[in-house]
Design a protein around this nucleic acid. Sequence first.
DNA 1: TATGAAGTAGGGGTTTACCCTTATTTTTGG
DNA 2: CCAAAAATAAGGGTAAACCCCTACTTCATA
Lengths: 216, 216
Amino acid sequence: MLIKVAVIDDHRIFIEGLHSLLSAQNGFQIVHQFYSEHIPDEYLSFQNIDVVLLDISLGDSNGIDLCLKIKKKNPGTKILFLSAFYQNSIIIRALRSGGSGYILKNCSRKELFDAIRSVSQGKNYFSHEISQMVAQSFLIKDPTKLSIESITPREREILYWIVNELSNAEIAEKLGISIKTVEIHRMRLLSKFGVKNTAGLVRKAIENNVLAEISL
Amino acid sequence: MLIKVAVIDDHRIFIEGLHSLLSAQNGFQIVHQFYSEHIPDEYLSFQNIDVVLLDISLGDSNGIDLCLKIKKKNPGTKILFLSAFYQNSIIIRALRSGGSGYILKNCSRKELFDAIRSVSQGKNYFSHEISQMVAQSFLIKDPTKLSIESITPREREILYWIVNELSNAEIAEKLGISIKTVEIHRMRLLSKFGVKNTAGLVRKAIENNVLAEISL
DNA sequence: TATGAAGTAGGGGTTTACCCTTATTTTTGG
DNA sequence: CCAAAAATAAGGGTAAACCCCTACTTCATA
């Protein structure tokens, strides 16, 4: 069972190191390798590739956009981010761009092999540092910031339908109440969330995870 | 250096087990313990408590709301969630409610002690299972969901300000263009995203990671 | 039993979003 | 250099959101 691997990184030395590492290990084969971030679209056909090792900081381009492109062309190919970068927002964007895992460049040989095997089998893999960082990003640093006023069950219900693109009239009909009542609930939501309009309402609702149904 | 601990759980046997565990170990002292979820507000003064071990599934009440209450009254007291529960949305809501860590009830003795020590020192602690689960919740399961029509740089800029609660008039002024132009961009965004209104626009923009600046 | 929180609903009004249409200029790529 | 895409902007209109106000009912709980 040979796992076919492609590597995309802008550091030539790093790719060569990876090449020698994977070649020395049974079960891996590096099929493609790109040194630059400027990869023409016609080269993005990875039908016969199992796993792409992708760096996030690719010169002036970035690995996240590249990941999106690759997954659109080759939905079956798994992406494993391999980066020295660990800034929270970057990690989360990477995860949302279609990747299957994220490890750090200073990881052990064993972890690299484990990660490649895992994602090639359709599983996910996160290095300990990455998953810890993602989890910690949810913690409230400042306890005084726990100030989002609690919303009532009915307000929560109204909010749910707002986020699902229903108008006040549609919500009123669905819940069997008057439009005026929906309006009132909506205004109280704006006030409680401290926002100016629907855009802010939806953003805060998602960010603060008020709606369990609306995951991420 | 004695760490003062309070335990809140609705399983009497579990609390007694915890008590004997922590008593046998130097450095810990269980000061309070509650068996029920119905704790009167006047008992929520934990000024001299370092760490509260809190179960999430407290009968008909829930540990998340209780955590919010405790942190509001005692910002300095650390909360360590200790639960058998691991459903994604619940975990994330728990983290956002002011806790400092989250471990599973089937964890090892050593992990329990480590976790309590960590949070009492102001650090965070997540069991491996929890942090992995949180990280995985960000992954896109279905690659075909990455298929949003590409938007132009200007549309992206408009979208950014929409998500930041600016009105068409405010965006027009900020970018030095007419309101009519902003309207056109906005309508094209609605069309490209396949949504009906601002709520859908903001939701899709966040979910599909269109805006790098809007992380979480 | 009374006080507050939650849900309900009306009137009346302003502002903003949404949806057509057409049309010019600029930029970009083959 | 030409065609396509992108950005600009207008007029004109409807629908929806937003923001005041008052006021009634229910329900829990102190």
